[in-house]
């Protein structure tokens, strides 16, 4: 009977029958993308921070310098491997590799979060390193000049600015992850793309199902973009500032608006 329907009727039919499956799939996709981007950012920040620890040949002990060099080499390998191979292969590699080589049986979900997180981490590490380096070195000197340690300067001055610098890249990664979780269907994660494959396999409605899935993916990425843009604007703060009346300094009242 579905063969007698026109395009829109088929879409309607599919939605009536499998609408909740699509939504659940979209939920799964969004969940994996959001959580993994978050964890990936944390990994990226940690790696980026370690990679930008300064070494002072005179002051630092050789032990510290060698340790740091080894850690940095390992991190380089991590970044290159996960940026240089397709995530679909990484997913298979980790899901099956963990059980065969290390005898650790990861669930599909664990593998999914793991793969997307460390993949994002590898990309974010480079962004974070770039973000840290692109902060004017004078900011670090200004912080040191009032007695801050390297860690204090990083936490209070450099990283907040680096974070703002790379917020667009974080957004990019989130959007990429929303799309790229589709490859996780190779390890049978029931994400949006998996639902599409199942539905179109059952009904032979590849075009119609793909249309639905396209619209859902696009909706998710557009909303994400918009929200991220709002966040960026919020971080940049107001273009105006309140000029405070000197007389009222004690009470902090009586503000007037200044335009700049």
């Amino acid at each position: 009977m579905i063969s007698n329907m026109n395009f829109w009727e088929r879409i309607l039919y599919i939605l009536q029958k499998y609408g909740t499956s699509y939504l659940k799939g979209a939920g799964t996709t969004l969940l994996i993308a959001l959580v993994s981007t978050f964890i990936g950012c944390i990994i990226g920040f940690l790696v980026g921070i370690v990679q930008t620890i300064p070494v002072d040949k005179k002051k630092d002990s050789p032990v510290k310098r060698i340790l740091l060099a080894v850690v940095n080499a390992v991190l380089r390998v991590y970044i290159e491997v996960f940026r240089g191979t397709p995530m679909i292969v990484q997913a298979v590699f980790i899901y099956y590799g963990m059980s065969q080589v290390f005898n650790v049986q990861l669930s599909m979900w664990q593998s999914a979060f793991l793969v997307v997180s460390i993949n994002t981490g590898a990309y974010m590490a480079e962004s974070v390193r770039g973000g840290i380096i692109s902060v004017d070195p004078g900011q670090m000197e200004g912080a040191k000049a009032i007695g801050m340690t390297h860690v204090q300067a990083m936490m209070n001055v450099i990283l907040p600015q680096a974070f703002r610098n790379i917020l667009p890249q974080i957004g990019n990664n989130l959007i990429i992850n929303i799309k790229d979780t589709s490859v996780l269907s190779v390890i049978s994660i029931v994400d949006l793309f998996f639902v599409h494959k199942s539905v179109s396999g059952a009904l032979y409605t590849y075009f119609e199902s793909a249309t639905i899935v396209m619209v859902i993916y696009l909706t998710m990425t557009l909303i994400t973009s918009k929200l991220l843009r709002l966040w960026e604007n919020k971080m940049d703060g107001d273009e105006n500032y309140e000029l405070v009346d000197v007389m009222d300094i004690g009470t902090q009242l009586g503000k007037k608006k200044a335009r700049v």
């Binding site: 004017d136 004078g138 200004g142 912080a143 000049a145």
Partner: peptide
């Protein structure tokens, strides 16, 4: 220390 380029914290 006070610098030529101020080095105020931009954030």
């Amino acid at each position: 220390m006070v610098f030529q380029n101020f080095n105020l914290f931009n954030n």
